[in-house]
Design a binder for these strands. Structure first.
Lengths: 208, 208
DNA sequence: GTCTATATAGGGATAGAC
DNA sequence: GTCTATCCCTATATAGAC
C-alpha cells in the first residue's frame, strides 16, 4: 500500500492531495467502526457518512469492502511498527522491561487494541479475507521475539537451554490474552500493571 | 435455560421430546455456524436449513436470534463445566499438570474453541448482546483459579507472597492467547505441547 | 410445530450523470 | 471525485394458514 504521490504524474497536485486525504479519512473512520462492530457488522454506508460522502463515493476510492479492510490493517501495522521496534530494542532482558510502553500505548488508544482483537477473531480461518495477513503477522512477531531472546543469550543476559520458540509463543499469547481480558473488563484488569508483572515474571524465568 | 419437561404438563410426551430434539439440533447447528462466520456473519436461514426447517420454523423455538445466541453459549458452558471441574480438582500444583486435558479437549473439538474465541471478540463491548455472559465467565474463571492456588498455598505446595489475582489473570490470558495462535496457525503452534510447557513453566514459578 | 407470505430493513456493488 | 439511482441479495421478525 505505497501511497507515493509520484505514481500519478498526470493528476494535479491539488487533486492528489484531496484524494489522499479522503482515503486517510475513510481508513480512519473504518478503523473505528470495524473495531466496534467488526468487519461483518459494519456497513460501508456508516463509514461513508462519518466522512461526509455517500457509499458510492467511498467505493470510488476503495473498489470493494475487502480492499478497504486491507488498507485498514496495513495502515495500522505501519503506525505500530516504530513502537514495536522501540520495545524490541537490541533484544535481551530489556525487551521485557519495556512491555509497559506497549500497554500504555494500547490504553491511550483503546480503539486500536479493540480493532485488532476483533479482526483477528474474524479472520482465524483460511477462508476469511484477512487470514493471510494475521497468520504472517503472528509468525513475524514470534520470530522477532526469538531473535531478541537469542541476542540476549549471546550477551549472557538470558539463560541457555530454554526453548525460545515456545517462550516467544507464550509471550505473544500472554500479551494478547491480557489485552482481551482488559478490553472485556477494564474495571477488574489493569493492562499496564498486568504487562509490568508479566515482564517481571518473564525476567525471573529467563535471566541467566 | 432449564429445559425441564414438567414445565408444560398439558403437552403430550411425544410433542415434548420432538420439541426438545429440535431445539438441540438448532443449537448445535448454530454453534457450528457461529464458530465459522461469527454471530453477525451467520443468518438464521442457514442454521434452519442445516436442521431441515425454514427460518420461520426456527424462530418458533427461539423467539429471536439473540435468544438463540444465549442458548448456544449456555449450552456450551454446561457441556464444558465437568472438564473444568476435573482440571481444577482440589487445586494446587495438580491443576497445572492437568492443563493438557483442556488442550486435548480443545483439539478434539476445534470448532468449540473457535466458537468461544469468535464470540468473545464479538462481545467485548457492553453494548454487545452477550457481553454480560463473557464478563461474568472470565471473572468466575479467574476466581476459581485463585481459589485453587490458595488451596495449594494452604497445603504448602505453592509459595506464599505471590499475587494470586495477577497470576490467575496471567494463566487465563496464556490459555486464551495460545488457543488463538493455534487456531490461526495450527501448523506452527501445537496446542497440547504449548499447554504442557505453560503448566511446567507455571510450576517452576509457583512451587514452594 | 411448521409452513408460506410478507413487512421492513440493510447489505455491497455498478451505471451513468454532473 | 462525487452524486443519484438502481440491482440484487440477504437479513430478522411477524401474521396467519394448515
Amino acid at each position: 500500500m505505497t501511497t507515493d504521490p509520484v505514481r500519478k504524474p498526470h493528476a494535479s497536485l491539488e487533486t492528489l492531495e484531496r484524494g489522499r486525504l479522503r482515503r486517510i479519512q475513510i481508513v480512519e473512520a473504518a478503523t473505528e467502526l470495524f473495531a466496534h462492530a467488526g468487519y461483518r457488522g459494519t456497513g460501508l454506508a456508516g463509514i461513508a457518512a462519518q466522512v461526509g460522502v455517500t457509499q458510492a463515493g467511498l467505493l470510488h476510492h476503495f473498489g470493494s469492502k475487502e480492499a478497504l479492510l486491507e488498507a485498514v490493517v496495513r495502515h495500522r501495522s505501519e503506525q505500530d511498527a516504530p513502537l514495536i521496534e522501540e520495545i524490541m530494542g537490541d533484544g535481551g532482558l530489556g525487551m521485557l522491561d519495556r512491555l509497559h510502553l506497549l500497554a500504555e500505548h494500547n490504553v491511550e488508544r483503546a480503539g486500536l487494541s479493540l480493532l485488532f482483537t476483533v479482526l483477528v477473531a474474524e479472520n482465524l480461518l483460511p477462508s476469511h479475507p484477512a487470514n493471510d495477513f494475521f497468520v504472517e503477522r503472528y509468525r513475524s512477531l514470534r520470530r522477532a521475539i526469538v531473535a531478541g531472546l537469542k541476542a540476549g543469550q549471546k550477551r549472557g543476559e538470558i539463560r541457555k537451554g530454554v526453548d525460545l520458540e515456545a517462550v516467544s509463543t507464550r509471550i505473544v499469547a500472554a500479551l494478547d490474552g491480557l489485552q482481551t481480558q482488559w478490553l472485556l473488563d477494564p474495571d477488574e484488569v489493569d493492562l499496564v500493571r498486568s504487562y509490568r508483572e508479566l515482564g517481571a515474571s518473564l525476567r525471573r524465568e529467563l535471566a541467566a
